[in-house]
Computed example of a mutant assay.
Amino acid sequence: MPRRPPRGTPSLALTEEFSTVYFEEFSIGLDTKGKVTTLAYNNPRINGDNSGPFIRQTSVKGYIGSRTQFTLPSKTGGFNIPTAGATGYIYNGLDYNIETGSNSFSMEGGVQASQANNNFLAYIRVNGRSLVFTDDGNNPGNYPPRYKAGTAYTSNLRYEVSTGKAKYYASGTNVNGVAQNLSFTYSKSFTSTELANMRAKRVLGIGYVDPATGTQNYDGTQDLGVISLNYTSATLLKTDGTTTVNYNTSLLDTDLYNNKIYGTAYWPSSAVTYSPTLGTFLHRANEWIQRPEGLGATCLDDYKSIHV
């Protein structure tokens, strides 16, 4: 999970061309309560495990886009993250060579939840640097481009072969009840061989930064809260730039490198119910109830488990 940038942090280093344009204004679930597995017993280690709990579903190589549709959760049903320093995230991502760091590229696009305002702020991150969206000084926390909880949202991150740019596109309803689109592009050239090694992903999680130290020190024991989501559509984009396929278990990969998992992971296992892998989980009291995502044959039968 990403670390939230401090106020005043520059949005992105201008080492490569990027642009952002606003157009016309217009469960899976996880809970950190109970006994959980600590980092000491996390072997192999999971990349990002100290940043907070998450469900990360990463594709095998050869996919250059992830498009998801869902209804943004709300505090009345879907998320409750009261812990200081904790923030809910829902996003898609692209990864290239993140295991070795050699000419690596990582981009994420989605939303982050606001516990105080019961809405969602647009979230975009490129190579570890976040684009900071500024609130209106007269109405902080309740001003576009924040999105309204309980409304439909489309999140689409992909590499466009024809333009040589990574593009994030989102559409939904802002806090004023008006349709709102957002588009962000980042110039980065990849050869066909490099694209064949790219991976796409979707992530649901709670990022945690210790308020006392300002560091990411989640170890699997902190009680942070709960967030749940029901994807109504989720597809991956192939390297030809036009063919899409549904997320399914055969296309997921742990991406294990030097005894560390960079891809698909469910962390911590005792706080996240993930079987069947492509199910949606809603939290009710101490019970997890699995509901299908509407992906047809790729979904497995209903599943129920008790979280203690």
Results as ranks from 00 to 15, higher is better:
V111P: 07
N118W: 06
P140N: 04
T213N: 02
N117F: 11
L224G: 03
T249S: 14
T243H: 07
H283Y: 10
T87I: 13
T273N: 11
F281Q: 11
A265N: 13
I46C: 03
N42F: 01
S27Q: 06
E25Q: 07
T239C: 07
N258L: 07
D219H: 04
V161M: 10
I64E: 08
T239P: 01
G52W: 06
K61Q: 15
H307I: 15
V60N: 06
P292G: 06
G62W: 07
G8Q: 12
T185V: 15
Y186P: 02
G34N: 03
N50K: 12
T173I: 14
K167Y: 02
Y266L: 13
L300T: 07
A265W: 04
D210L: 07
A170Q: 10
T193A: 15
G294W: 05
Y159R: 00
N248L: 02
G8H: 09
A113M: 14
Y168W: 12
N42A: 15
Y274L: 05
G177I: 00
H307P: 00
T71S: 09
Q222D: 05
S305L: 12
F281L: 03
A152M: 02
N139R: 08
D31N: 13
G241M: 05
V178G: 01
K61N: 15
R3W: 01
N230W: 04
S11A: 11
R3S: 15
G78F: 11
R3D: 12
C299M: 08
L39R: 14
T244E: 13
N156G: 01
N47R: 11
G205Q: 08
N127R: 08
E194V: 08
V111T: 10
A13F: 05
T15R: 13
I55Y: 02
G52N: 13
I55H: 04
D301C: 01
D255I: 07
V308R: 12
G294N: 02
I227E: 08
K148Y: 02
M1C: 12
L39Y: 02
G128D: 09
P10E: 11
T163G: 07
Q222T: 10
N156P: 00
G263K: 14
T213I: 12
S183R: 06
T280L: 09
R158T: 10
D253R: 14
T215R: 07
V21G: 00
L251H: 06
P2S: 15
L157W: 02
R7N: 06
A170F: 08
G110Q: 12
S104G: 08
R3K: 14
S305I: 11
F79K: 06
T100I: 09
N47S: 13
P2G: 10
E160L: 15
Y147C: 00
N92L: 00
S183M: 05
I90E: 03
Y91W: 12
T154C: 01
L12R: 11
S11I: 00
E108D: 10
D223L: 03
P144R: 12
G207P: 03
L204E: 01
N103F: 14
N118Q: 07
G34T: 02
R45G: 14
N156V: 01
G141M: 04
M198P: 03
G294L: 09
A152E: 12
K304Y: 09
T20F: 02
G85I: 07
F281A: 07
T232P: 06
